[in-house]
Protein backbone atom coordinates (compact mmCIF):
# COMPACT_ATOMS: atom_id res chain seq x y z
CA UNK A 1 0.00 0.00 0.00
CA UNK A 2 1.43 3.35 -0.98
CA UNK A 3 1.24 6.24 1.41
CA UNK A 4 -1.01 9.16 0.70
CA UNK A 5 1.86 11.59 0.92
CA UNK A 6 3.91 11.87 -2.25
CA UNK A 7 6.60 14.31 -1.25
CA UNK A 8 7.79 15.45 2.16
CA UNK A 9 9.91 18.57 2.30
CA UNK A 10 11.46 19.02 5.70
CA UNK A 11 13.31 22.08 7.04
CA UNK A 12 14.54 22.94 3.54
CA UNK A 13 16.87 25.94 3.17
CA UNK A 14 18.74 27.36 0.20
CA UNK A 15 21.35 30.10 0.40
CA UNK A 16 22.86 31.94 -2.55
CA UNK A 17 26.45 32.13 -1.44
CA UNK A 18 27.27 35.60 -2.69
CA UNK A 19 28.40 38.61 -0.71
CA UNK A 20 26.33 39.14 1.38
CA UNK A 21 24.71 35.67 1.29
CA UNK A 22 21.03 35.60 0.34
CA UNK A 23 18.77 33.24 2.24
CA UNK A 24 16.38 32.50 -0.60
CA UNK A 25 14.50 29.64 1.06
CA UNK A 26 14.37 29.42 4.86
CA UNK A 27 13.39 26.24 6.70
CA UNK A 28 10.46 25.29 4.52
CA UNK A 29 8.48 22.18 5.44
CA UNK A 30 5.50 20.85 3.55
CA UNK A 31 3.84 17.58 2.63
CA UNK A 32 2.38 17.13 -0.84
CA UNK A 33 -0.46 14.65 -1.19
CA UNK A 34 -0.83 12.15 -4.01
CA UNK A 35 -3.01 13.58 -6.78
CA UNK A 36 -3.02 17.04 -5.27
CA UNK A 37 -2.57 20.37 -7.06
CA UNK A 38 -0.58 22.56 -4.71
CA UNK A 39 -0.35 26.21 -5.65
CA UNK A 40 2.83 28.06 -4.71
CA UNK A 41 2.15 31.79 -4.71
CA UNK A 42 4.35 34.78 -4.09
CA UNK A 43 5.98 37.73 -5.78
CA UNK A 44 9.28 37.97 -7.62
CA UNK A 45 12.16 37.16 -5.35
CA UNK A 46 10.12 35.36 -2.70
CA UNK A 47 11.94 32.07 -3.31
CA UNK A 48 9.18 30.04 -4.95
CA UNK A 49 11.20 29.05 -8.00
CA UNK A 50 14.33 28.42 -5.92
CA UNK A 51 12.32 26.07 -3.70
CA UNK A 52 10.89 24.19 -6.68
CA UNK A 53 14.29 23.85 -8.31
CA UNK A 54 15.94 23.00 -5.01
CA UNK A 55 13.80 20.00 -4.22
CA UNK A 56 14.77 18.48 -7.59
CA UNK A 57 18.41 19.50 -7.16
CA UNK A 58 18.32 21.67 -10.25
CA UNK A 59 20.18 24.54 -8.60
CA UNK A 60 23.72 25.48 -9.52
CA UNK A 61 26.34 27.31 -7.45
CA UNK A 62 26.30 29.83 -5.88
CA UNK A 63 23.06 28.25 -4.62
CA UNK A 64 23.70 25.89 -1.72
CA UNK A 65 21.17 23.68 0.06
CA UNK A 66 22.09 24.43 3.66
CA UNK A 67 19.56 22.37 5.53
CA UNK A 68 16.74 19.91 5.24
CA UNK A 69 15.75 17.26 2.77
CA UNK A 70 13.09 16.31 0.27
CA UNK A 71 11.83 12.73 0.42
CA UNK A 72 9.86 11.27 -2.45
CA UNK A 73 7.45 8.48 -1.47
CA UNK A 74 7.44 6.38 -4.60
CA UNK A 75 4.32 4.44 -5.57
CA UNK A 76 6.41 1.26 -5.21
CA UNK A 77 6.50 2.00 -1.48
CA UNK A 78 10.14 3.01 -1.51
CA UNK A 79 11.14 6.31 0.12
CA UNK A 80 13.70 8.21 -1.95
CA UNK A 81 15.80 10.92 -0.31
CA UNK A 82 16.42 13.11 -3.34
CA UNK A 83 19.51 14.72 -1.82
CA UNK A 84 21.14 11.33 -1.32
CA UNK A 85 20.90 10.14 -4.93
CA UNK A 86 24.16 9.78 -6.84
CA UNK A 87 24.49 11.29 -10.30
CA UNK A 88 23.21 8.26 -12.24
CA UNK A 89 20.32 7.65 -9.90
CA UNK A 90 19.44 11.35 -10.05
CA UNK A 91 19.39 11.30 -13.85
CA UNK A 92 17.12 8.27 -13.83
CA UNK A 93 14.89 9.84 -11.18
CA UNK A 94 14.30 13.13 -12.96
CA UNK A 95 11.55 13.14 -15.55
CA UNK A 96 10.67 9.57 -14.62
CA UNK A 97 9.28 10.42 -11.17
CA UNK A 98 9.24 14.22 -11.26
CA UNK A 99 9.07 16.36 -14.37
CA UNK A 100 9.01 20.08 -14.83
CA UNK A 101 7.41 22.58 -17.17
CA UNK A 102 9.57 25.66 -17.15
CA UNK A 103 8.61 29.29 -17.39
CA UNK A 104 8.58 30.20 -21.07
CA UNK A 105 9.02 26.51 -21.85
CA UNK A 106 7.45 26.96 -25.23
CA UNK A 107 10.63 28.72 -26.30
CA UNK A 108 12.76 25.84 -25.05
CA UNK A 109 11.96 23.54 -27.99
CA UNK A 110 14.74 22.93 -30.47
CA UNK A 111 13.87 24.93 -33.59
CA UNK A 112 15.59 22.55 -36.01
CA UNK A 113 14.01 19.28 -34.86
CA UNK A 114 10.42 18.17 -35.36
CA UNK A 115 8.38 17.97 -32.18
CA UNK A 116 7.90 14.24 -32.75
CA UNK A 117 11.64 13.72 -32.68
CA UNK A 118 12.01 15.80 -29.55
CA UNK A 119 9.35 13.75 -27.81
CA UNK A 120 11.05 10.54 -28.94
CA UNK A 121 14.27 11.69 -27.29
CA UNK A 122 12.60 11.32 -23.91
CA UNK A 123 11.94 7.62 -24.56
CA UNK A 124 15.31 7.04 -26.22
CA UNK A 125 16.97 8.27 -23.05
CA UNK A 126 14.74 6.85 -20.36
CA UNK A 127 13.24 3.77 -22.05
CA UNK A 128 16.09 2.55 -24.28
CA UNK A 129 14.56 -0.90 -24.59
CA UNK A 130 11.39 0.44 -26.17
CA UNK A 131 10.92 -0.48 -29.83
CA UNK A 132 10.66 2.14 -32.53
CA UNK A 133 7.04 1.51 -33.42
CA UNK A 134 5.96 1.57 -29.80
CA UNK A 135 7.91 4.75 -29.20
CA UNK A 136 6.24 6.46 -32.14
CA UNK A 137 2.86 5.35 -30.91
CA UNK A 138 3.55 6.69 -27.41
CA UNK A 139 4.53 10.10 -28.81
CA UNK A 140 1.50 10.25 -31.08
CA UNK A 141 -0.71 9.31 -28.13
CA UNK A 142 0.81 12.08 -26.01
CA UNK A 143 0.14 14.70 -28.67
CA UNK A 144 -3.46 13.50 -28.85
CA UNK A 145 -3.71 13.63 -25.08
CA UNK A 146 -2.75 17.30 -24.83
CA UNK A 147 -4.95 18.30 -27.74
CA UNK A 148 -2.22 19.05 -30.28
CA UNK A 149 -3.03 15.95 -32.33
CA UNK A 150 -0.77 13.22 -33.72
CA UNK A 151 -0.84 14.72 -37.19
CA UNK A 152 1.54 17.40 -35.89
CA UNK A 153 4.32 14.90 -35.12
CA UNK A 154 6.40 16.15 -38.03
CA UNK A 155 5.77 19.85 -37.38
CA UNK A 156 8.59 22.12 -36.35
CA UNK A 157 8.16 24.47 -33.37
CA UNK A 158 7.81 27.59 -35.54
CA UNK A 159 4.82 26.01 -37.27
CA UNK A 160 2.90 25.90 -33.99
CA UNK A 161 1.31 28.69 -31.95
CA UNK A 162 2.62 29.54 -28.48
CA UNK A 163 -0.25 27.68 -26.87
CA UNK A 164 0.42 24.55 -28.93
CA UNK A 165 4.13 24.66 -28.13
CA UNK A 166 3.30 24.93 -24.45
CA UNK A 167 1.08 21.86 -24.81
CA UNK A 168 3.94 20.00 -26.47
CA UNK A 169 6.06 20.81 -23.43
CA UNK A 170 3.33 19.50 -21.16
CA UNK A 171 3.13 16.33 -23.29
CA UNK A 172 6.88 15.96 -22.90
CA UNK A 173 6.63 16.42 -19.15
CA UNK A 174 3.94 13.73 -19.00
CA UNK A 175 5.73 11.28 -21.27
CA UNK A 176 7.02 8.96 -18.58
CA UNK A 177 3.88 9.19 -16.45
CA UNK A 178 5.64 11.00 -13.60
CA UNK A 179 3.99 11.06 -10.22
CA UNK A 180 4.74 14.76 -9.81
CA UNK A 181 4.82 17.60 -12.31
CA UNK A 182 6.24 20.95 -11.25
CA UNK A 183 4.97 23.84 -13.34
CA UNK A 184 6.63 27.23 -13.09
CA UNK A 185 4.34 29.94 -14.51
CA UNK A 186 3.34 27.60 -17.37
CA UNK A 187 0.67 29.89 -18.77
CA UNK A 188 1.88 33.37 -17.87
CA UNK A 189 3.03 34.18 -21.39
CA UNK A 190 -0.23 33.04 -22.95
CA UNK A 191 -3.56 34.69 -23.67
CA UNK A 192 -6.34 34.27 -21.16
CA UNK A 193 -8.38 32.15 -23.56
CA UNK A 194 -5.46 29.81 -24.30
CA UNK A 195 -4.48 29.82 -20.65
CA UNK A 196 -7.95 28.69 -19.65
CA UNK A 197 -7.92 25.80 -22.15
CA UNK A 198 -4.53 24.59 -20.96
CA UNK A 199 -5.50 24.81 -17.29
CA UNK A 200 -8.63 22.80 -17.94
CA UNK A 201 -6.54 20.23 -19.73
CA UNK A 202 -4.05 19.93 -16.88
CA UNK A 203 -6.94 19.51 -14.49
CA UNK A 204 -8.59 16.80 -16.68
CA UNK A 205 -5.34 14.91 -17.12
CA UNK A 206 -4.71 15.06 -13.41
CA UNK A 207 -8.07 13.39 -12.73
CA UNK A 208 -7.40 10.85 -15.48
CA UNK A 209 -3.81 9.99 -14.60
CA UNK A 210 -3.66 10.87 -10.92
CA UNK A 211 -0.37 12.78 -10.81
CA UNK A 212 0.33 15.62 -8.38
CA UNK A 213 1.13 19.15 -9.47
CA UNK A 214 3.08 21.95 -7.84
CA UNK A 215 1.89 25.03 -9.69
CA UNK A 216 4.01 28.15 -9.26
CA UNK A 217 2.64 31.58 -10.13
CA UNK A 218 2.07 35.05 -8.76
CA UNK A 219 -1.48 34.96 -10.10
CA UNK A 220 -3.43 34.26 -6.94
CA UNK A 221 -6.94 34.42 -8.46
CA UNK A 222 -5.89 31.73 -10.92
CA UNK A 223 -4.46 29.53 -8.16
CA UNK A 224 -7.63 29.90 -6.13
CA UNK A 225 -9.56 28.35 -8.97
CA UNK A 226 -7.29 25.43 -9.83
CA UNK A 227 -5.53 24.43 -6.60
CA UNK A 228 -6.53 22.08 -3.82
CA UNK A 229 -4.21 23.83 -1.40
CA UNK A 230 -2.13 27.00 -1.66
CA UNK A 231 1.18 27.88 -0.05
CA UNK A 232 1.93 31.59 0.12
CA UNK A 233 5.61 32.44 0.19
CA UNK A 234 7.34 35.63 1.26
CA UNK A 235 11.04 36.25 1.86
CA UNK A 236 11.86 32.55 1.58
CA UNK A 237 9.27 31.43 4.13
CA UNK A 238 5.88 29.82 3.62
CA UNK A 239 3.75 32.26 5.59
CA UNK A 240 0.51 30.40 5.07
CA UNK A 241 -0.54 27.00 3.75
CA UNK A 242 -4.24 26.16 3.57
CA UNK A 243 -6.99 24.95 1.27
CA UNK A 244 -7.89 27.28 -1.59
CA UNK A 245 -11.24 28.02 0.03
CA UNK A 246 -9.64 28.89 3.36
CA UNK A 247 -7.11 31.14 1.68
CA UNK A 248 -9.94 32.83 -0.18
CA UNK A 249 -12.42 33.23 2.64
CA UNK A 250 -10.34 33.13 5.79
CA UNK A 251 -6.74 34.13 5.10
CA UNK A 252 -4.81 34.25 8.38
CA UNK A 253 -1.62 36.02 7.40
CA UNK A 254 -1.59 39.73 6.77
CA UNK A 255 0.57 39.26 3.63
CA UNK A 256 -1.92 36.77 2.13
CA UNK A 257 -4.68 39.27 2.68
CA UNK A 258 -2.62 42.00 1.04
CA UNK A 259 -1.89 39.79 -1.98
CA UNK A 260 -5.58 38.96 -2.30
CA UNK A 261 -6.55 42.60 -2.14
CA UNK A 262 -4.02 43.40 -4.89
CA UNK A 263 -6.36 41.79 -7.41
CA UNK A 264 -9.52 43.72 -8.13
CA UNK A 265 -12.52 41.44 -8.48
CA UNK A 266 -13.72 40.79 -12.01
CA UNK A 267 -17.42 40.68 -11.24
CA UNK A 268 -17.61 41.57 -7.53
CA UNK A 269 -17.48 44.99 -5.93
CA UNK A 270 -14.00 44.76 -4.47
CA UNK A 271 -11.65 47.02 -6.39
CA UNK A 272 -13.97 50.00 -6.48
CA UNK A 273 -11.50 51.94 -4.44
CA UNK A 274 -9.47 52.53 -7.59
CA UNK A 275 -12.24 54.51 -9.14
CA UNK A 276 -13.31 57.20 -6.73
CA UNK A 277 -11.41 57.36 -3.47
CA UNK A 278 -7.94 58.80 -3.08
CA UNK A 279 -5.07 56.37 -3.02
CA UNK A 280 -2.61 55.99 -0.21
CA UNK A 281 1.08 55.43 -0.90
CA UNK A 282 1.84 51.72 -0.97
CA UNK A 283 3.72 50.36 1.98
CA UNK A 284 5.92 48.12 -0.15
CA UNK A 285 7.43 51.03 -1.96
CA UNK A 286 7.81 53.37 0.96
CA UNK A 287 11.24 52.05 1.83
CA UNK A 288 13.90 52.79 -0.72
Amino acid sequence: MTSETLLTVDDFSVVYDVDPPVEAVRHVSLALQRGEILGLAGESGCGKTTLAYGIQRLLKPPAVITSGRAVFHDESGEDIDINALDADAMRAFRWDKVSMVFQGAMNALNPVASIGRQLEDVFLTHRPSMGRAERREECAGLLDLVGVGRERMRSYPHELSGGMRQRVMIAMAMALRPQLMIMDEPTTALDVLVQREILEQISDLRSKLGFSVIFITHDLPLLLEISDRIAVMKDGVIVELASALDIYSDAQHEYTRRLLSSFPSLTGERGDFIRGSESTPTTTEAAL
Binding site: R196, D219, L224, S249, D250, L260, L266
Partner: peptide, 25 residues
Protein backbone atom coordinates in the same frame (compact mmCIF):
# COMPACT_ATOMS: atom_id res chain seq x y z
CA UNK B 1 -18.29 36.75 -22.72
CA UNK B 2 -15.58 34.28 -23.74
CA UNK B 3 -12.88 36.64 -22.47
CA UNK B 4 -14.74 37.13 -19.22
CA UNK B 5 -15.31 33.40 -18.82
CA UNK B 6 -11.61 32.69 -19.27
CA UNK B 7 -10.42 35.31 -16.75
CA UNK B 8 -9.86 34.00 -13.24
CA UNK B 9 -12.75 35.02 -11.03
CA UNK B 10 -12.50 33.43 -7.57
CA UNK B 11 -15.54 35.34 -6.35
CA UNK B 12 -17.68 33.47 -8.84
CA UNK B 13 -15.74 30.23 -8.36
CA UNK B 14 -16.44 30.16 -4.65
CA UNK B 15 -19.93 31.60 -4.85
CA UNK B 16 -22.41 29.32 -3.13
CA UNK B 17 -25.43 27.86 -5.00
CA UNK B 18 -27.62 30.75 -3.86
CA UNK B 19 -25.39 32.93 -6.00
CA UNK B 20 -23.96 34.87 -3.10
CA UNK B 21 -20.17 35.08 -2.93
CA UNK B 22 -18.51 33.63 0.14
CA UNK B 23 -17.72 36.60 2.33
CA UNK B 24 -14.14 37.29 3.09
CA UNK B 25 -13.47 38.04 6.72
Amino acid sequence: RALRGASPDPDKHFADPSGRAVTRS
